[in-house]
Simulated assay, not measured.
Amino acid sequence: MDSAVVKGVATNHLSMEWIKLKTLGKGSFAIVHLVKPTNSVSDDQVFAMKSCLYQLSSSLQKEQKILKRFFPCRNIVQCYGDMLSFEQGAVVYNLFLEYAPGGSLLDLINNKYGGKVPECDARCYARILVEGVRDIHERGYVHCDLKPGNVLVYPSDEYGSVSSLKIADFGLAEQPGERVDEPGVDPWMLKFPGTAVYMPPEGINYKKISASMDIWSLGCIVLQMVTGKLPWEYEDLTDLAIQLGSRRYSPKIPENMSSTGQDFLSKCFVRDPSERWTADMLLSHPFVLPDRPSVAISNKASSP
Rank of each mutant, 00 (worst) to 15 (best):
K208F: 11
S250T: 09
P187S: 11
L223E: 02
R179H: 14
S284E: 08
W216P: 03
L129S: 00
S246D: 08
M257S: 14
M199V: 08
W188N: 15
A279I: 04
K26N: 00
I167Y: 08
D169T: 09
A301P: 04
N94A: 10
S284W: 02
V162T: 11
Q88I: 13
Q262W: 02
D157F: 12
A30Y: 00
L84Y: 15
W277R: 06
G261W: 07
D121T: 10
L53M: 06
N12Q: 14
Y113T: 05
P273M: 03
S274L: 14
E87M: 12
I109C: 07
G261N: 13
S104E: 05
A196C: 10
C220D: 09
V41Q: 11
K147V: 08
S3V: 11
P101V: 03
V270Y: 06
A173Y: 05
V197L: 07
N94S: 05
H137S: 03
A4S: 13
G219L: 13
N256W: 07
S161Y: 03
D186L: 09
E87S: 04
A100Y: 12
P200I: 02
D44A: 12
A126W: 04
P251R: 12
Q243V: 09
V162M: 04
D280A: 08
K36E: 08
D44Y: 11
G140W: 07
H143R: 11
N299E: 14
N75G: 13
V5S: 05
F287I: 02
S104F: 04
G115P: 13
I19L: 10
D107Q: 09
